[in-house]
Nucleic acid binder design. Structure first.
Lengths: 212, 212
DNA sequence: TTAGCATGTGAATCCTGATTCACATGTGCG
DNA sequence: CGCACATGTGAATCAGGATTCACATGCTAA
């Protein structure tokens, strides 16, 4: 009932390829499988196969399939958050806070459009409860990042006062949904990412009450 | 392999309680179970129990569990759409198209807040592929309703020109997401519906570029 | 060399529900 | 009455996957 936590970076033994190659391989395989088949296609067998190991091996590294997913999920979301944050910081010079806000969400959108399946999986696809809980948590974090930026803009007098939390959630959700059309497997139109992102920028500025 | 389609309104035989009471009872039971336990809790057994019949009976009326869900889903969504449409028509007199737009989404929000579980199920909860497909279709319909209203407002010169489809999707998604916080089982805060709806009205007007 | 540990294997096992089916029951009609 | 049809029953069966486990196979250290 203990174990479950593999070497990680070890401290006892000597050379170890670092972080157990197989563990990482499994994580990667899982991401790949999810990316092009969704969670539905991500059976233990499928993942193990892709990673080039036997099903049982997965359980040497993760207590359960769910746990693997949770880890995968966290990694993916953290990466997204980092990139979004970074993009905001990348708006230096005379950029306004509203510019930063717009940039954060445009980044979110661009990346989503670039990896539709994964985004779908992160945002909305059916999953086990454990992962779903994680999802809620991360949505909140996305919204929180947006909320911070929004708050700053308001404090700077760039925007009218408003319910920051709610607007932030609505922005994240709005962008997400606007993306779902283009993203979803059934989408027929498939408009150019540029147009979508442009429209999203407009949407964001309007939604927060920015009068250009 | 045929059958599956029960009496409905009959045409052959004589008196029949109309539409088979049991069928309806099953539909209702299913909705109830979903409303307070989500799809996860809605096993064939649970539904049948609630309806006061045996599991096998369900298959006298529906080809499969999925089919029952699809029907349930359609009924629920259609009802919502009707109410939303009606609410728009309820803005008579000198009301602007933007007023109508705002009303439609406020109605959406109010109703969602009143029946959190069901809304969650309709909007985002994990389901079988068949139902999920239905969900996409209905989301599109919601967005379409919003898009129509939005388009009219633009044509009337009340709003600046914009990507109507995308904005509509973003509005629906934004409202949905803004609602998820208050709605979700984990929500701690639980702000008053009034405040949420008010914030949503503001959000909508801004998002479409309405300068009050 | 050998014990010990980490890791891998994959067939067997378990679990969770959906779905089926052989058996009532009831009602109308010839 | 007795057949035919609609409907209901619920135990048995199936199916799809996750999880386990008894058995390798190294590699490291004494």
């Amino acid at each position: 009932m203990s174990a479950a936590t593999p070497p990680l970076l070890a401290g006892s033994s000597h050379r170890k390829p670092a972080g157990s190659g197989t563990r990482l391989r499994l994580l990667t395989a899982a991401r790949e499988v999810v990316e092009d088949g969704g969670y539905g296609a991500a059976s233990v067998l499928a993942i193990a196969d892709r990673a080039g190991v036997a099903a049982g091996t997965l359980y040497r590294h993760f207590a359960s399939k769910e746990e693997l997913f949770v880890e995968l999920f966290r990694a993916a979301c953290d990466r997204e958050l980092d990139v979004m944050r970074a993009s905001a910081d990348g708006v230096p010079a005379g950029g306004s806070h509203v510019d930063r806000l717009e940039t954060v969400l445009a980044t979110f959108a661009s990346r989503a459009l670039a990896r539709p399946r994964l985004t779908w999986a992160l945002l909305a696809e059916p999953v086990d409860p454990l992962v779903d809980a994680e999802r809620l948590a991360y949505r909140a974090r996305y919204a929180s990042l947006v909320a911070d930026t929004l708050r700053r803009a308001i404090e700077a007098g760039e925007l009218p006062n408003q319910d920051v939390e709610l607007t932030a959630a609505a922005l994240v959700g709005g962008c997400g949904e606007a993306l779902v059309g283009p993203i979803s497997p059934l989408s027929d139109a498939e408009p150019s990412p540029e147009r979508v992102v442009a429209a999203i920028r407009t949407f964001v500025r309007g939604a927060v009450g920015d009068r250009r």
